[in-house]
Amino acid sequence: MSRGWRPGVVLVQGVSMDQVEGAMHMVEGPVVVAADPFDPESRTAELPRGGAPDPVIPGVVDPLVPAAGSGLRGWAGRVGAALVRDGLGLLPVMALAALPMHFFVGRLDDTVIAAPALFDLAGGFGLLLLPLMWVAYLTVSALPLVVCLAGAVGVVVPSAADGVRPRPREVWASVRDRLRALWLWFAVVGLVTGGLALVTVPAVAAVASTGLMTLAGVFGCGLLIERGHGVRRSRHLLARAPLAGLLGCSALAAVLPLVADELVGGVAATAVAVLAVQVWAVGALVTYAQARRREAPVTSGSLRAELKAPEEWLR
């Protein structure tokens, strides 16, 4: 080691210090953590996050990421395989989501119907409770979506990568840092879909809810795995993946609970609703993985590495 050596500084023989002084910089840690694919000037470069990704080996079938060019058939195969492989692991997730789904989640118009009763309460001052009822509705109604999507990511990704179902503590540790942002996102989605149900006909509200559920599923997976990109990133990924399967799952998750509530009601409707939402969550995860595969080589192992990467690596 030469006497003039310093970390992050390279001296070229035959070149004076004055000539290279402006070109030398002290560097600590990675210069670029994640590239912005939407940078029009291409001023960033991609570095691996959370460890080197597993290589994509030709001829080897990944249990989570559909092969390139497999389309809807590959998507359906991965969703079905994930549900069969991790169905038992997802049962506690669905049980946890069933509690708010059954006891607390109602329709937004129920709070509007309650307005006359609130007006008679305490000489009209009870009407001030109506905004609090809306906030409570939006907060709790988003919880089943948050639980099912976070559970799908936390269970299915490690299981596909390692071949072993993760323990509940490992699932919680892998997603807990992003639950607040995910919950806020789905609360906004609930506000939009609930408002549309009040001001439009049911068919229009169902179509809008299906589209929002599709976008929300891919965006939620990005929040949990990439932890740093927004809606624009989700639109970018949605443009790269076949959406027929996820649109179908989103439509079932948006419409089937309402139909089941009208036909059977009670516990049976809750079971149908939770199952539909959990299938939507797994479908959203596979759609996200398929879009990432079309963008760059990715495997279940590389997704697991991103999911388990420390928060500071992803900022």
Rank of each mutant, 00 (worst) to 15 (best):
W183N: 07
L184N: 11
R167W: 01
G190Y: 07
V153M: 03
P168A: 10
A161Q: 11
R167G: 08
P166D: 00
A173S: 14
V188T: 13
R165I: 09
W172F: 10
R180G: 12
A161V: 07
G163Y: 01
W185T: 11
R176T: 13
A173I: 13
A187E: 13
G190Q: 12
P168C: 05
V164K: 11
R178V: 08
V189F: 11
R176Y: 02
D177L: 15
W185R: 13
L179P: 03
V157C: 03
P158E: 06
A160E: 11
W172R: 01
P168M: 10
A160S: 03
W185S: 12
V175L: 11
D177V: 14
R165P: 06
V188E: 05
L182S: 02
W172V: 00
P158F: 04
R167K: 15
V188G: 09
V157I: 14
E170M: 02
D162T: 15
V164E: 15
A181K: 13
V188S: 10
P158Q: 08
A187Y: 06
L182K: 02
R169T: 03
R165C: 00
R178G: 14
A173Q: 14
W183Q: 10
A160Y: 07
P166E: 00
R169P: 10
P168S: 06
A160H: 02
V155K: 05
A181P: 10
R180N: 01
L182M: 00
V175N: 09
V171S: 02
V164F: 09
G190L: 03
G190M: 04
R180P: 09
A161Y: 01
A173D: 04
A187Q: 08
V188N: 04
R178H: 12
